[in-house]
Design a protein around this nucleic acid. Structure first.
Length: 492
RNA sequence: GGGCCCGUAGCUCAGCGGUAGAGCAGUGGACUUUUAAUCCAUCGGUCGGAGGUUCGAUCCCUCCCGGGCCUACCA
């Protein structure tokens, strides 16, 4: 019989014995204190020198260690608040001491008794009564090295969370980031909304969508790739400040920076432009960072950056010129830019457009250097079909991206609200799509029709939540900040 | 997608041509203030899968499956 099966079989037998004695899975517990609260209570009363310090408590949690000394044992318990130690003694517990033989690592138990401090100084429950709350059939990960195997950590995240404090910290940080983002927008008078995930056409970004099928309607539907087009319709409808935090899906490669589904934050503010949005982003990031970490510094490997210092501002043209010596105005043909890229060892598709080739240069030579937070303003209009053109230079769009630690963290526009121009730009994209360009955006006639109703000038923002959580936690793999990252089918 | 690396006990890892080891966990025993408890004994393996080379393969070769890092695209 395989060893794992033996381990499980032994635990099954203990479960049977527990059931014979009463229950191995009682529904009701009588916990009076979380572990951390019990310890704090003891420490407080102890400081005050009260006799009452030996207060009786009932705690409950998962057994993480058992140190058995024959007629007595120490049992470590952990609940959501932290841990506390139990001391079980034969002469105190009598018959109930025998329960120790049926308790394994990973089980949940409840224990009552007075608090005391051991010789080594640990606050401990002197157990007078205890019982099993949940019998676990599988053993927990090893206690010292913990769970290291990355694949198991991602596929069986419960084991990872059980074994690794860091994983629990990251999960909590993500939750706090989301809460802090919501507080920020709520304070500024934004309304949180929810828009459809299933759509006829997936628009608002350049990405390949996933498709699914609606049975009753017998119709294929796309999963959204952005939130943009619906949110703008809400602005048209009269909601001046809206935001959504929603899952979007992009049918592209999986990597340490890309998960096929990720959480996107988008906000739209009427009567604001991209300069206003830039100021807001700065405030947003600082607010989130200080609320979650208590400071404005971020450590990432060797690098430490201080988001409290003024953020750099440059333009697409200046940044490219500074880092590559290329002024794209001198090279208006796609073929010229492709040659420049190839000359510098950057791979570009032979039929890459002018903008795509420029972006390859940006990604290779500029972005990695943008360690301290840097706004890059005024993208080539060709790359930004949903952004308003600059009045004094129609080849540029009122768009910025924010970079920090070499990675794009935010993307924003003064939104295009001229329906005639918008329709023309989207038709151009449609022509590219028809010509086989998978990156082209899909024209959405319903959206343009809505624009014809009149959209006030508005500033829009997009932030990948995972990217923000990675910034806050200093993690460099998206899989560490997504609880259940996409994996291939398990095999081998 | 390309390059490099990895897959051995439930977990963490050694071994790298002669048929598999340690620690933790488990089991039995000693121990009533331990905390990686300690001490003694002991159980536990299709060495990711399939082929090939060889007298003999966990080890060398090929393919497949899964994973990681770097790189590319995106957010």
């Amino acid at each position: 019989m395989p060893s794992e099966q033996e381990l499980i079989e032994l635990r099954r037998q203990k479960r049977e014995q527990l059931l014979a004695l009463g229950d191995a899975y009682p529904a009701r517990t009588s916990r009076t204190h979380e572990a951390a609260k019990a310890v704090a209570l003891f420490e407080r009363t102890e400081r005050e020198g009260l006799e009452e310090s030996r207060r009786a408590v009932t705690v409950a949690g998962r057994v993480t260690a058992i140190r058995d000394m024959g007629r007595a044992a120490f049992v470590d318990l952990r609940d959501g608040s932290g841990g506390i130690q139990l001391h079980v003694r034969r002469n105190v517990l009598g018959d109930q001491f025998g329960l120790l033989a049926l308790v394994d690592l990973g089980d949940f138990v409840e224990a009552s008794g007075r608090l005391f401090r051991t010789r080594h100084g640990e606050v401990t429950v002197a157990v007078t009564r205890w019982r099993v709350l949940t019998k676990a059939l599988r053993p927990p990960p090893e206690k010292w090295a913990g769970l290291v195997d990355v694949e198991t950590r991602y596929r069986q995240r419960h084991l990872d969370l059980m074994a690794n404090e860091r994983s629990r910290e990251i999960a909590r940080a993500r939750s706090e980031v989301l809460a802090a983002v919501r507080r920020f927008f709520q304070r500024r008078g934004f309304m949180e909304v929810e828009t459809p995930v299933l759509q006829e056409e997936a628009g608002g970004a350049a990405a390949r969508p996933f498709y699914t099928h609606h049975g009753a309607l017998d119709r294929d539907l796309a999963l959204r790739i952005s939130l943009e087009l619906h949110l703008k319709r809400l602005v048209i409808g009269g909601f001046d400040k809206v935001f959504e935090i929603g899952r979007v899906f992009r049918n592209e490669g999986i990597s340490h920076r890309h998960n096929p589904e990720f959480t996107l934050l988008e906000s739209y503010e009427a009567y604001a432009d991209y300069e206003d949005v830039a100021n807001m982003v700065e405030a947003l990031f600082r607010s989130v960072l200080s609320e979650v970490t208590g400071g404005l510094e971020v450590r990432h490997g060797e690098e430490t950056i201080d988001l409290g210092e003024p953020w750099a501002r440059t333009t697409y043209r200046e940044a490219l010129l500074e880092h590559t010596g290329i002024d794209y105005r001198a090279h208006p043909e796609a073929a010229q830019v492709r040659t420049l890229a190839l000359d510098r060892g950057v791979e570009v598709d032979p039929d890459a457009s002018w903008g795509t080739a420029l972006d390859a240069l940006m990604a290779a030579f500029v972005e990695p250097h943008l360690v301290h937070p840097t706004f890059v303003f005024d993208y080539p209009a060709e790359l930004s079909p949903l952004a308003k053109r600059k009045r004094d230079d129609p080849t540029l769009a009122e768009r910025f991206e924010l970079f920090a630690l070499g990675i794009e963290r935010a993307n924003a526009y003064s939104e295009q609200n001229d329906p005639v121009e918008q329709r023309e730009l989207l038709r151009e994209q449609a022509r590219k799509a028809a010509g086989g360009d998978e990156e082209a955006e899909v024209a959405d006639e319903d959206f343009v029709r809505a624009l014809e109703q009149g959209m006030p000038p508005a500033g829009g923002l997009g932030v990948g939540i995972e990217r923000l959580v990675m910034l806050v936690t200093g993690e460099h793999s998206i899989r560490e900040v997504v609880l259940f990252p996409a994996m291939r089918e398990s095999g081998g």
